[in-house]
Design a protein around this nucleic acid. Structure first.
Lengths: 146, 146
DNA sequence: GTGATTGCAAATCTTTTGCACTAAA
DNA sequence: TTTAGTGCAAAAGATTTGCAATCAC
């Protein structure tokens, strides 16, 4: 999906989204999109930026994540009280959420069949259907990584 | 489902859950369970208690909601960052969540068919499947209440 | 009595905001 | 230039915690 140079892909992505490609946005977008699908919290992304010597404030990370979400580059996923995850996968899909580890994992949209959706209340339109399969480490069966 | 006297039903419920029936727990449980299914936030329940002249601190409301949840009397529903809802319906069911109004509405479990669940990752067991149908007021179709 | 529970206030944690400063176009 | 974007520090919420006072048993 990326064009030849990674940086140019990011630049393109921001331009297309109508976002001015500033240093911070370029750097954060590169972190977010250079690898495959990711689920990050604001704090996680901020730490990662600092670790790579990208000077950016936590406030800017929050602002940027929301701008990206509004622009359709990211999707916000709410599974735990008091913490938001941002998902770089914006395709139709669902999630495993491990309650033991806080880990989120994508489930391709076509792996979950939600049939027979009830009709939304009068005057409302469906904006999205989220399926969250909450899992936990089985203490008996295994102690493998999730 | 309640036995003859409302109060005795609540008392029974707390006893069965292994929770000492204190004034505050009895009062909150009565507010929660005397009517049909409810979705409350801690703050909402606190306000309601104060409005009925039930002296209870917000901290105790939080503690009590979590104790009830742990005891299986309530279910916590996370749909928005930064706010938890507690649902008095503990049966298998799902939710409509109106992004315009913040309103939550139950969907009976059998109204949503989730087929072909993907297998959870190695060493993990499914603890729950949440389906959240996010809706919003359709600005064109209607301006009726949801 | 004795241990569980409560209230209060302070602490914590995530997220947002105001505003002077800086950078992109 | 001109306007959008950024950093910082402070504010705002929601939730939690510590501890002395209180209540159920």
């Amino acid at each position: 999906m990326e064009s030849s140079s990674p940086a140019s892909g990011v630049l393109q992505r921001l331009r297309t989204a109508g976002l001015r490609p500033t240093r911070q946005r370029m750097a954060l977008a590169t972190l977010l999109f250079e690898t495959g699908d990711r689920h990050v919290t604001a704090e996680h992304l901020h730490d990662e930026a600092l670790a790579r010597s990208i000077p950016v404030s936590l406030a800017t990370v929050y602002n940027t994540l929301h701008q990206f979400t509004t622009a359709g580059l990211l999707r916000e996923v709410v599974v735990e009280p008091g913490r938001s995850y941002f998902d770089t996968n914006i395709d139709d899909h669902h999630h495993f959420f491990c309650e033991s580890t806080g880990h989120l994992q994508d489930i391709p949209g076509d792996m979950v069949m939600v049939g027979q959706l009830p009709q939304p209340p009068e005057g409302a339109a469906i904006s999205r259907v989220d399926v969250i399969i909450r899992i936990r480490r089985d203490p008996v069966a295994s102690r493998s990584q999730i």
